[in-house]
Amino acid sequence: MIAPGGAPGRLGPEPLGCVAVFGGVYSNHVALAAAIEDARARGVEAMLCLGDLGAFGPNPDKVFPLLRDAEIPVVRGNYDDSISRGLDDCRCGYTDPRDNYYARLSYQYTFSNTSPENRKWMSGFPDEIRFRLGGLDVLGFHGSPRQRNEFLWESATPTHFLTKLAREHRADVLVGTHTGIHWKRRLSSQSWYVNVGALGRPANDGRTEVWYAILRADVRQLEVEFVPLAYDHQALAHEMATEELPIEFIDTIRTGWWTTCLEILPAKERARGRF
């Protein structure tokens, strides 16, 4: 169970058997509420979130009460870091003028609609969360264990690179998000990397569901289940339109295809999308 009071960044000291891990929320409070309900119904013992609460979606303040009420620890994402410290951008690092336009627009909207209290709460998020799952040491982070905004794409991340990260950061299971597309890879008999995907927007696969992961371990065998989560995406799209967010963002929610900020995708992931 989560430690009493939901102290940020800590799960209880006892080994867990089953946890739900949420990736970037991107202000999608509708999906977050649905995910919490779905994970509870599946009997998970704990939930955690790997950061990037804001961006992309509407009314960023709406995700905070959901996380606090469910006592969900949150790792600091690059967006959380920028917003809580009042930096001038999201540190997404786009160079394409079109990508940059949308990234700035999204950041400015999120920044000006996040309350000072919530910004302060985010400033207490830890860089990583460690916990025991069965007999395995799990390390949760946002991008990579060495760099908050590092992209670890399936087609651009060698197994030997992940093995080195796991060794250097003393973990059996590395769990991250940041890219928005879920994937997993077994590194050795008892060592894994898992990208839990994102709750904030679909996985660029033409489906409107968003994804999260359930991790289970019995002694030292890990089982990873990626959960496609149907939620009221039309309600979210409507709210985004009311907030006058770009039609391109709303199209992504309605169609499941990414329309902006595609510069960061490697060849294989890019080719699977529509744009």
Partner: peptide, 8 residues
């Protein structure tokens, strides 16, 4: 792009 990395 490599600008603006955030290191831990």
């Amino acid at each position: 792009p490599t600008s603006g990395e955030v290191h831990l």
